[in-house]
């Protein structure tokens, strides 16, 4: 089984603070990491390999300097990594075009992605990639049952649960619930140093990147508390709270 996992390096969004004056996120000095759900995708890829044999290749569009994050995925059990340096990883159309270009040069049976990256959470890269490669896709998978010729996936669609089956090749985006990514042991971390990381120029994959994304601004959402205290009779208070919540459109 030839498994490709797309993984993105992101800033650790839990550490981001916003500038109180401009409301813009302060990104300086914030730790980076591999987007959490992409780690679930890597874990799932490694599990499929452990079950059916084969190879797991990690593909990442992003900075090529901070290899420790990519190496972490190799330590988890991926066999090799390819990094395609590109500055604006927020443009999902360009990123999926670059990924498709890279993947077209590789053999593959399964492509795994996280349902979305934790920084921008557009959830677009995976589906666009499948469309560009012209292969079937299963999104929001929370359980996979891989077999030799087909794979079944339980999908979580909020109010509905759907089970789907596909032949290979197929692109699958996974949710956070699908597994608990393993922590690599010290020996696996040391072993990762010997696994190949190839850097590929994006210009060799796509002739021109067409950006369809217009970015107007990135701002923090400021949350202000209303500090209303209901202290009358408890039944009255509940009534008023419900009424006000409904007025604010919080309750339907």
């Amino acid at each position: 089984m030839n498994i490709i996992v797309c993984a993105k390096e992101v800033v650790d969004v839990s550490e981001i603070k916003t500038d109180p004056k401009t409301n813009k996120p302060i990104l300086q000095g914030i730790d980076k990491k591999i987007s959490d759900i992409d780690k679930n995708a890597v874990e799932e890829g490694v599990r499929i390999k452990e079950k059916l044999g084969g190879k797991v290749t990690v593909l990442s569009v992003g900075p090529s300097e901070a290899r420790e994050y990519i190496k972490e995925l190799l330590a988890m059990g991926a066999d090799e990594a390819k990094i395609i340096p590109y500055a604006d990883t927020g443009d999902y159309n360009v990123v999926s075009t670059i990924l498709a270009g890279a993947i077209n040069n590789l053999g593959y049976d399964i492509i795994l992605c996280g349902e979305a990256s934790i920084d921008l959470f557009s959830g677009q890269t995976g589906p666009r990639l499948a469309q560009k490669l012209g292969i079937p896709q299963i999104t929001y998978a929370k359980k996979l049952e891989p077999k030799e010729d087909t794979i079944t996936a339980d999908r979580d669609l909020g109010d509905k649960k759907v089970t789907m089956e596909s032949s290979y090749p197929v692109l699958i985006s996974v949710t956070k619930e699908i597994n608990e990514p393993r922590l690599p042991s010290l020996m696996q971390i040391l072993g990762a140093a010997n696994k190949p990381i190839e850097v590929i120029a994006h210009s060799s994959l796509v002739s021109e990147e067409t950006s369809v994304l217009e970015r107007i601004d990135i701002k923090g959402v400021s949350m202000e508390r209303k500090n209303i205290i209901y202290k009358d009779d408890i039944d009255d208070a509940i009534g008023k709270l419900v009424e006000n919540l409904a007025k604010d459109g919080v309750l339907g």
Partner: peptide, 8 residues
């Protein structure tokens, strides 16, 4: 390696 060990 040391960074990966720390993260792990």
């Amino acid at each position: 390696n040391q960074k990966m060990i720390r993260n792990m």
